[in-house]
Design a protein around this nucleic acid. Sequence first.
DNA 1: GAACAGTTTTGAACGCGTTCAAAACTGATA
DNA 2: TATCAGTTTTGAACGCGTTCAAAACTGTTC
Lengths: 215, 215
Amino acid sequence: MKTPTEKSTKTRQLLLDTALELFATRGFAGTTMRVIAEESGLSLGNAYYYFESKDAIVHELFRDLLEKHRAATWPLLVQGNNLETNLRVALDKTLETMAPFHEFGPAFIRTAFAGAHSDLSDVHRALEFGLWRQVVATSRPLPPLAIRNDLPKLLWLIQRGVFLFWAYDSSPGAARSHRLIKNVAPVTARLVVLSRMPVVRSILDDVLSLVRNAA
Amino acid sequence: MKTPTEKSTKTRQLLLDTALELFATRGFAGTTMRVIAEESGLSLGNAYYYFESKDAIVHELFRDLLEKHRAATWPLLVQGNNLETNLRVALDKTLETMAPFHEFGPAFIRTAFAGAHSDLSDVHRALEFGLWRQVVATSRPLPPLAIRNDLPKLLWLIQRGVFLFWAYDSSPGAARSHRLIKNVAPVTARLVVLSRMPVVRSILDDVLSLVRNAA
DNA sequence: GAACAGTTTTGAACGCGTTCAAAACTGATA
DNA sequence: TATCAGTTTTGAACGCGTTCAAAACTGTTC
């Protein structure tokens, strides 16, 4: 693993692909490290040569899913949509992308919330943010200038909240999560519009600076 | 286990007490089911006669901690404090109570968020809410009547957020979590005051009905 | 070729949470 | 006292994630 690139990248990728397919078909508990290795034609110990732990595999899967979500959502963010529509699209796509892995909820939460200040996740964090910046940038009318810069972070936080809710949502078809989105989107949009009023704006500033300092 | 009460309640309690002590001293991973059983003078299998799983023990520990938090916070909620003070006291006590079990974060999150609609947790939920109702009731000046009923639920949600943040907060001494509390309390209080203004109030109503439908 | 320094692969092992059939115990009934 | 239906306790086992020393492979240098 010293030299970053080898033809062992292939093996690593094979392992990853196999794991991802098994995860989707057999679920989390059903996909043991032994099965992943076997299905890849490798020995158990060998799998651990490429991945530190099962969690490490889940972590990569999660990152891939976020990337997939970004790719799927981006083209839908056409100029002219209002913020509510864009937000709803982005949030709906989140659940759609994650749907096959609903039972991974707890594992995902761990990987999503842990190590907020690691090196690799910084790059990744930037990518995530790009999407929410695009959500804001393509919305018409554009949100008030005063909050335009911080709005992406707020939306990102909202996504996290929805994701968390979904991860532990045991209602059939995650119906409650979808209902939540249907409600969250208009409320947020309305909040943004009203942010032109000084009172609302001052509170929003408070909340945003809170988010800025914390997350 | 058919008859709810026996002198085996003693054994169960012994197991629980031992586990709690070991958890605090040896940590989560270090406290294996085998150690718990051994330290209690029982066999491993016997421990499983009383507790379905290790998680079940964690669940009870968590409930006990919430109860402890409630008992410790209640007497501090004297009339005359303003909402900000009361909220801060309650949140600070939350972290103080949980502090020895910081590394349990992920396990606690699972037990705290999972099974939102179970039978036993309803009783428990009611107890939790009581505390936040007290926070509101003892605050002077009393929050506007219009939101007084829903405010406890909002505060409870805020506590959950802080708890979640803390659970994954790896800053030394959970300093970031404490800073978050220091900021959240005044912002919330200010929001409540401003809820007298129609614009703010309408948004708050939106958010509250959102919370009411979701959580 | 032979020797050598990697990298990759193996196979067996460890301790963990969890399960379960069978044994030991309990107290009421005849 | 003997029997019987519980409840409690045991001990061995299973499969899991993970570790690790040793083997098998590379490719490079004389």
